[in-house]
Simulated assay, not measured.
Amino acid sequence: MKIEKLAAIDIGSNAIRLLVANVITERDGKEPSFTKSALVRVPIRLGADTFNSKNISEESKNRMIKAMEAFKLLMEVHGVQKYKACATSAMREAKNGKAVTEEIFEKTNVKIDVIDGKKEAAIIFSTDLSTIIRNDKSYIYVDVGGGSTEITIFSNGKIVNSKSFKIGTVRLLNKKNSFKDVWENIEIWLKGNTQFLKKPTLIGSGGNINKIFKLSGKMMGEPLSLIYMKAQYNFLKSMTYDDRISELGLNPDRADVIIPATKIYLSAMKWSGAKKIYVPKIGLADGIVKSMYYGKI
Rank of each mutant, 00 (worst) to 15 (best):
M1Y: 09
M1W: 11
L18N: 03
A21D: 09
T25R: 14
E26C: 06
P32G: 12
D49S: 11
D49Q: 09
N52W: 03
S57D: 08
S60G: 05
N62M: 14
R63D: 13
I65L: 12
E69N: 13
E76F: 08
E76M: 10
G79Y: 10
Q81H: 08
A85L: 11
S89V: 07
M91C: 14
F105T: 06
V114H: 00
V114C: 09
E120Y: 06
S130L: 03
Y139G: 01
V142R: 00
G146K: 02
T152W: 04
S155R: 02
G157D: 10
K163S: 10
F165Q: 04
K166Q: 14
L173F: 07
N174C: 10
K176C: 04
F179S: 04
D181W: 04
L190V: 08
K191L: 07
K191E: 05
K198T: 15
K198W: 05
K198S: 14
T201Q: 15
I209L: 12
I212D: 00
L215E: 07
M219E: 15
S225P: 02
L226E: 13
Y228Q: 02
M229P: 02
Q232E: 15
L236H: 08
T240A: 11
T240R: 13
D243W: 04
I245T: 10
S246Q: 13
E247T: 11
L248C: 10
R254M: 00
A255D: 09
V257I: 15
P260V: 02
L266Y: 12
L266Q: 07
V279T: 15
G283K: 02
I288E: 08
S291Q: 10
